[in-house]
Design a binder for these strands. Structure first.
Lengths: 148, 148
DNA sequence: ATCGGACCTGTAGTAGCTATAGGTTCAAGA
DNA sequence: TCTTGAACCTATAGCTACTACAGGTCCGAT
């Protein structure tokens, strides 16, 4: 018999919005849960832990799909460590990729802006670079653009 | 009388998907354009330049909203340079913010993963960290999560 | 009993495309 | 000239991870 928590309690204790918790339920990360007579969700400590786990994972940038996997793995602790490691390493690699792409972006932006500074007053190099047909200033890294 | 380009021509010359060009039109970045008798879009060199400008901006990570602004500014080249600079600097700042957040994320991930390595075989520290109630491993930078 | 806040469901919106479905037009070869 | 197949058309739904309504119900404290 653990004390029952309302959805608002869970939200407050995990720093999550109520709507987000309902969204997690709808997308299968949180289980459908017992209801009060009036239809309000009644959670217990286990649900609180699960939500905290989800939030920590999200804070570390894991996509919901990976969170799903991590939750499944955490339910059977035997033998799961290698798989957990794989998920974590994949994510780390993704993060590092993003950093690398953003850094080359940063370089390009700085170059474009600096370029403008040295031009004579009155013509805007930034616009010229953006309009440039020659594509000479372009990043050679033609990524699919999913994010940056 | 400039030669007419089909939407496919524009797509090929700018490395854009046809659907994307139509999407740009629908969202007001590309103007509504003359049609052939059969209803196909007929573009000219000006449209090609405009699309190239949009794509260059996107490659540099400018959001469409900023691209809209940059396009407007590029149409009146007098006096626009300061505003263009402002947009570019704002974007640069946003990119640097993202890099900073991703780097602290990277640090956290590495710590979590390394932590796991030093634990004894068989218990999974990664899962423990994610499940940790104490929140001790958490990023202090509680960002709104719009990205990362 | 009442009243205000918390809860409910369902839907639409965010960014920036991408991917269908179901139909029409165009251009090149026979 | 006819045919055929690629390219075009519109409209709509899907992607991520939420967030924000609208319109209604429930609960707990006074």
């Amino acid at each position: 018999m653990d004390a029952a928590f309302s959805i608002g309690d869970l939200a407050a204790r995990t720093g999550t919005k109520v709507e987000t918790i309902r969204y997690y339920e709808k997308s299968g990360l949180m289980p459908p849960v017992a209801r009060t007579a009036g239809g309000h969700r009644a959670y217990n400590k286990g649900h609180l832990d699960r939500l905290a786990f989800i939030r920590h994972s999200r804070e570390l940038g894991f996509p919901l799909e990976s969170v799903r996997t991590l939750l499944a793995l955490s339910d059977r602790p035997d033998q799961s460590c290698a798989e957990v490691d794989k998920v974590a390493h994949n994510h780390l690699r993704a993060v590092r990729d993003r950093i690398a792409r953003l850094r080359s972006l940063e370089t390009e932006l700085v170059r474009m802006i600096e370029d403008g500074r040295h031009g004579q007053v009155g013509d805007c190099r930034v616009i010229e670079v953006l309009a440039d047909q020659s594509h000479a200033h372009c990043l050679h890294d033609h990524h699919d653009g999913k994010d940056l």
